[in-house]
Amino acid sequence: MFGRDKNAARKKRGEEERARLLSGDHPTKRHYKKIVGSKKKGCTAGIDVKQVTRFIDYKDCNSKWSKRKASEEIRLARLRGETLASERRFYIRLPSNEDHQKTHSVGELTGFLNPLNSELRKKIHELVTHGVTTVKEMKRHLRIHVETVLFPSPQSRPPCTNLAYYPTEKCLRNHIYASIVKLSYATNVD
């Protein structure tokens, strides 16, 4: 979600390919760039994961010399193909809120960036099939659904600013329209 862009090289190659295709006398492809904001764009925060393998038979290595000797023994045993008693550990470091503060907001305001929850999308489609097509009525039904079915406990409910569970009227209108179109297409196909 946050961190460096791992697809930067692929994106650069794609841009160069598009520029090459559009540079000739007869451009073969046209691409319209869709500008959409991203949460991770320019954020330096990242999750660090380290995997450590501990060899149980070599626990008592306190001095530098004993560690070096144990390391040589383990290396030789692995080269011979021996199986050693070991355990794997993963150490995870999660970024703090201060790591994000320089590039984007964190906290309750980030609820404005969330897309609509998939369960609510299904509920909108279900309600449209039952004849609910007004935004005001849909908003009332979804609020009841969120507060009774998805989050019955008041302590676990998301804040009202989280647009994934409390969408705007414009968002609801668009989803209602999409469900109506989907239903009309399904009835025309049948």
Rank of each mutant, 00 (worst) to 15 (best):
Y165A: 03
L76I: 07
F112D: 05
E126K: 11
E137G: 08
L120E: 00
K67V: 04
P167A: 08
K123S: 08
S96G: 12
A77Q: 08
S63T: 14
V106S: 12
R80M: 07
L142A: 03
S153G: 14
S63Q: 06
E82C: 08
V149I: 07
H100L: 12
I124C: 09
T103Y: 04
S66M: 09
L127R: 12
H145L: 00
T53D: 12
I92R: 01
C61G: 02
R75K: 13
M138K: 06
I180K: 09
R143W: 09
N117Q: 04
K102W: 11
R80V: 02
L120C: 04
L150V: 07
L142Y: 01
T148Y: 04
E98S: 14
D99P: 05
L120W: 03
D99A: 15
L84H: 10
I180M: 06
H145W: 11
L84K: 10
Y91P: 07
L113R: 09
T148N: 05
R173G: 01
H104S: 03
K69T: 15
V135C: 06
R173I: 00
G81D: 02
T129E: 11
L76P: 07
A85I: 06
A178W: 08
R78Q: 09
H175I: 03
L79I: 08
Y177N: 11
T110K: 05
K139Q: 10
L113K: 09
A178M: 12
T103M: 09
H145M: 07
K182N: 13
Q51L: 10
I74N: 03
F151G: 02
L109S: 14
S66T: 12
R75W: 06
R78Y: 01
N117P: 00
I180C: 02
C160E: 13
P158W: 09
P167I: 09
P95I: 05
P159S: 14
A164C: 03
A85E: 09
S86D: 07
R93F: 07
K182R: 15
G81E: 03
F55M: 03
S86T: 10
P158A: 15
T83P: 00
N174Q: 13
V52K: 12
R93V: 06
N62T: 09
T110G: 03
Y91I: 11
V128F: 04
R80E: 13
Y91L: 15
K139D: 06
K136T: 07
K67I: 04
L120A: 01
Y165L: 05
D99R: 12
A178K: 13
A70M: 04
S153K: 11
N162Y: 01
E82L: 13
L163T: 13
E119N: 06
E82N: 15
L150P: 00
E147S: 12
R157F: 02
C171G: 04
K69W: 08
K59W: 04
L76G: 02
K139P: 01
P167N: 06
L79A: 03
R78W: 06
V181Q: 15
G131H: 05
